[in-house]
Design a binder for these strands. Structure first.
Lengths: 145, 145
DNA sequence: TATTGTTATACTCTATAACTATA
DNA sequence: TATAGTTATAGAGTATAACAATA
């Protein structure tokens, strides 16, 4: 990717630059790999977390996904309009909703998971199993920091 | 960062998810670390490449930075309005400009470089030197792939 | 005809503030 | 008063198409 006729200054020594390049590459092919360009990594991860935590509040989802409340509303609207997610009024605190997958949402998630895993393996196909473990460990250290 | 009371489904096993998290973290603190929130990673990297390759055409910059032509125009406009970059008509091909740092642009770049390096070291401060080399190597493999 | 660069335009994403309804 | 969620609005960033100048 580095055009050998160009100089890159400090960029090759910056971790942030490499992170940006790699994640842009991931992002770029994501929608196509899933067969639907409107499904972004964010929207997929929302569906994933809802599937793994039925009944979560929107604020909890927003917190986990680093979203503002309006952004969480819109991301949930996206899946609700596709009938993959439903909001249910919480009987004990009627200000909030519990967020659940519909039956159709469960099937959609299962289908997307297969494609996401394939896309992700493709992204890192140039790495050995050992390198991949090391990479994930380093990234986790960074974002857990 | 992982709330232990939540389940995350497939997300922790996805390299793309980890990349996105880490690069968002990098991006988040970037402008503040540089003391100017209008200087994004993209704008910084443009200045860096122009500094390392005086006289580059806009199309070459766009190609390296994965920008469309209009986006390159705007990024160059940004630095030109700050008198850090100048466009000079190419005498041999009068359709194109050579892009150069001004004297003030050179000083600005030198100042930004110190802050960017500090920010970047901070981002990866939780990693050993060995881990950091390994991380950069893996990321380079991914985006060079 | 093809290419460099600009302008016009639209679309997405994100962020803030103001609002409602509940607590 | 404070919190959950929505709506309104505006700002970035990005993408396409149409254009002017030049090759």
């Amino acid at each position: 990717m580095f055009d050998p006729s160009l100089e890159y200054g400090l960029l090759p020594s910056l971790t942030g630059f490499a992170l940006r390049r790699a994640s842009l590459l991931d992002f770029g092919g994501f929608g196509d790999a899933l067969g639907d360009r409107s499904i972004t990594p964010l929207r997929y991860s929302l569906l994933e977390v809802v599937g793994a935590n039925p009944g979560l509040q929107q604020v909890q989802l927003a917190d986990f996904l680093r979203l503002t409340k309006p952004a969480a509303t819109l991301a949930i609207d996206f899946w609700e309009s596709r009938e993959c997610i439903s909001r249910r009024k919480d009987a004990r605190d009627r200000r909030s909703y519990g967020i659940y997958l519909t039956e159709s949402g469960k099937r959609t998630l299962a289908k997307l998971q297969r494609r996401v895993v394939e896309h992700d393996q493709n992204l890192a196909s140039c790495l050995t199993e050992t390198e991949l473990r090391s990479l994930r460990g380093c990234l986790k250290k960074i974002y857990d920091n």
